[in-house]
Amino acid sequence: MRIYVCVKHVPDTAANIKIVGDAAYDTEVKYVANPYDEYGVEEAVSLVEKNKKGEVIAVCVGDKGAANTLKAVMAMGVHRSILIKTEDQFPGSDITAKALCKAITDDGGADLIFMGKQSVDGEGMQTPYRLAAEMGLPVATGIVAFSHGGETVNVQREIDGGAKELITIKTPCVLGAAKGLNEPRFPKLPAILKAKKKEIKEMDLADMGLTDQGQCRLKSLEPVQERSNAKILEGSTREIVASLVQILKEEEKVI
C-alpha cells in the first residue's frame, strides 16, 4: 500500500511574524511541519506499521528550507519525500493542489492520501478539496477517527455542534486530519539519524509543465489588530442592557 501525506512547511505558531512590504513576511523565523499534517503523518505511519507493509511518502510544496520539515516527518517514520520547490511564499491552494496531484500521479499513484484539514498559516482549508477534485477522488476533512477496511475506509468527521459524522469512503481517497485523530509521536533519537539518509526527491514547481500557474494571488498582509480587553458589565439586567445599548451606540457606533 502506498500512502501519500501532504505536508506544509509553516512558521511555528509561537514565532513572532514580522510583515515585510505588502505581501510578505520575514522568513527568519522557526518553521515546523503544519501541526494538522502531523496527525496525517502519524495515522499513515501507524497504519503501515500495523500492516507491516506499505510505504509512506511525504509531498510538500515549499521553498528549499522545507527539506528540514520533510526530514522531521521522515524522523517520525515517513519513508521518503518529494519536495516541489517554489520561491512563492504563498502559493495558492489551486496551484498547490495541481502540483501535488501531478507529483503523486507521476510517482505512481496513491492508495490513500492524508493531509491536515487546514494549514496554520494560510488557514484556507481548500487544499484537500482541490487536490481531491484534481485527482477525481472522494474527500473528507475534519477526520477524528479512522479505520482501514481494504477497499473502503471508515472515518468520523467533526461537524457543527460537536456532533460527529460517520462515513464510509471508497479508496483511494483524500482525508483531511483534525486534532483528536491521534497523538503524533515524538521521534526516537535513532530515527532522527536514519532520517538523514532517507531520500528527498526535489523538483521545481516551474518545471512541472503546469500550464495554469494559479488564479489566486495574495494582495496584502496585515497584522491582526490587538483586541481591546473585554469589559464585564455589572448591575441589574435593566442597568446592564441600558449600558450595553449606550456602548453600542456611542462608543462602538454600531447601532
Binding site: N68, K71, A72, A75, F186, L189, I192, L193, A195, K196
Partner: peptide
C-alpha cells in the same frame, strides 16, 4: 546542523 535542529525541536516539543 540539521540533525541537531530536529533533535532540539523534537525534544523541546516533548519537554
Amino acid at each position: 546542523t540539521e540533525k541537531h535542529r530536529i533533535v532540539r525541536s523534537s525534544v523541546r516539543a516533548f519537554a
